[in-house]
Design a protein around this nucleic acid. Structure first.
Length: 432
RNA sequence: GGAGAGGUGGCCGAGCGGCUGAAGGCGCGCCCCUGCUAAGGGCGUAUAGGUUUACCCCUAUCGAGGGUUCGAAUCCCUCCCUCUCCGCCA
């Protein structure tokens, strides 16, 4: 959510900014609604003030010994006038307020100045590459066939158990998957200063509103059949970031750094992606991810995004997986993000780089929704903090990348050196 | 699932129809006193919105939502959450 005051101050400037995203902000409609809100507020608040005075007077008269009815009589006129209008006016004021809230909730975040122009994925700008894609001297397989050969990936059984877009992993491949989780958690907690957290995988609607998945993207979520509005998490970002919802963090605690890392499953309905990436593990309804979240003081978030992205890159480098770093263009940056870097890993079978991590700075956008604040010692006042998150990394896609990049001519797969300690010294996954 | 107790400011905690946006304490900030240390005294200290150059002022908020009333932190209803006991259970 944007700052209402800021929008009010210069709606044209906001409109211009949002146009970069291709978002059309109707300034006239906003100003009209805001004016209506103001009028409704002034009227209803004025009336409430009158009522308060009248009520107080009755109280005083009764204290002074007057009978209750007699006391009411003295202010009768005022009361009648008030009771006739108050419900109506407060109702109106509330309704207008709700409309304005909805409008504000629907506005995307402002983009950072260095976000490149563009409409979609094709306009994202590559910033750097790391590693050399390996040259294969044999016919390579994609991860599905590699996994099948190892007897470790079983899509058919998963389809029987549930349906499409699920997978069963078995034996050494399942272990490799787990090894990736352990390795990443240890790296981020050991070398990057993150605190490991374990969170609920089911969250309420307030949490999803806080991070911005609701109200606009409900169709992407799995909602539970339950009396309360419960959802499966689409990413650990939701519970992790919402830990600070309605909190005021003391300055001292901020200094120590609010860095959290969490391994969790992620559940996504993938509505609207029919036919996309249907083969293999690239796009599943359930996948696992190691998520990085930081809450920082406003002036630090720009730097924090660089660092956080670097933490995700460190995983790819340790696994010796070639990747490139991309800055998302205006049209491809998600509505709640201020600036996003994607890390794309090299997938030889697809002969292309595919997203494996997305690292974003949200500025105050999420914090304002969540009322996540810190106490600024200079002012003594609570101020919104900045939130960031990134995948460090998506486990399923990392497994895909390992299977493809480390495959051998005989169908076996070498275990990356960094994972050996987690594999019980199994250094090669052999075909069955 | 059953029975009971409770949810008040950054924290603890009083209030249980009007003088309460809320006593008292802790914490925090400023000042005074004190030649170290320890202690003491004074003042200030919620959030959001409106208005304003600013001060003032106005409105809302005592878990959430309804209701009763001229008036609700206080009474009634529904829901959520926490704690204790019983049952069940990984």
């Amino acid at each position: 959510m944007l700052d209402l005051k800021q929008v009010r101050q210069d709606p044209q400037a906001i409109a211009t900014e949002l146009r970069r995203r291709g978002f059309d902000f109707d300034v006239a409609a906003f100003e009209q609604l805001d004016a209506r809100r103001k009028q409704a507020d002034v009227q209803s608040q004025g009336l409430q003030a009158e009522r308060k005075i009248a009520s107080k007077k009755i109280g005083e008269l009764i204290q002074g010994g007057l009978a209750v009815d007699a006391a009411k009589q003295t202010v009768n006129q005022t009361l009648e006038k008030i009771s006739a209008q108050l419900d109506d006016l407060t109702g109106q004021a509330r309704q207008v307020q709700e409309e304005l809230d909805a409008l504000m909730m629907g506005l995307p975040n402002l983009l950072a100045a260095d976000v490149p122009a563009g409409n979609d994925e094709a306009d994202n700008r590559e910033l750097s590459r790391w590693g050399e894609p390996r040259q294969f001297d044999f016919e390579i397989l994609d991860h599905v066939d590699v996994g099948l050969g190892l007897g470790g990936l079983d899509f058919e059984t998963a389809t029987k158990l549930t349906g499409s877009r699920f997978v069963v992993m078995r034996g050494p491949v399942a272990r490799l998957h787990r090894a990736l989780v352990q390795f990443m958690l240890n790296l981020h907690t050991g070398s990057h200063g993150y605190t490991e957290v374990n969170v609920p995988y089911i969250v309420n609607a307030d949490s999803l509103r806080g991070t911005g998945q609701l109200p606009k993207f409900e169709e992407d979520l799995f909602k539970l059949h339950h009396d309360l509005d419960y959802y499966l998490i689409p990413t650990a970002e939701v519970p992790l970031t919402n830990m600070l919802r309605d909190c005021i963090v003391e300055a001292e605690e901020m200094e120590q750094g609010m860095r959290f890392v969490c391994h969790s499953p992620c559940f996504r309905s993938e509505a609207g992606s029919y036919g996309k990436d249907t083969r293999g593990m690239i796009r599943q309804h359930q996948f696992e991810k190691v998520e990085l979240v930081q809450m920082v003081k406003p002036l630090q978030s720009e730097q924090a995004l660089e660092e956080l992205t670097g933490h995700a890159e460190a995983v790819l480098q340790a696994l010796d997986l070639p990747y490139r770093k991309v800055i998302l263009c205006a049209g491809d940056t998600s509505v709640n993000a201020h600036k996003t870097y994607d890390l794309e890993v090299w997938l030889p079978a697809q002969d292309t780089y595919r997203e494996i991590s997305s690292c974003s700075n949200f500025g105050t956008y999420q914090a304002r929704r969540m009322k996540a604040r810190w106490r600024n010692p200079e002012t003594g006042k609570p101020e919104l903090l900045h939130t960031l998150n990134g995948s460090g990394l998506a486990i399923g896609r990392t497994l895909v990348a390992v299977l493809e990049n480390y495959q051998c001519a005989d169908g076996s797969v070498q275990v990356p050196a960094a994972l050996l300690p987690y594999m019980g010294d199994v250094s090669t996954l052999s075909p069955q």
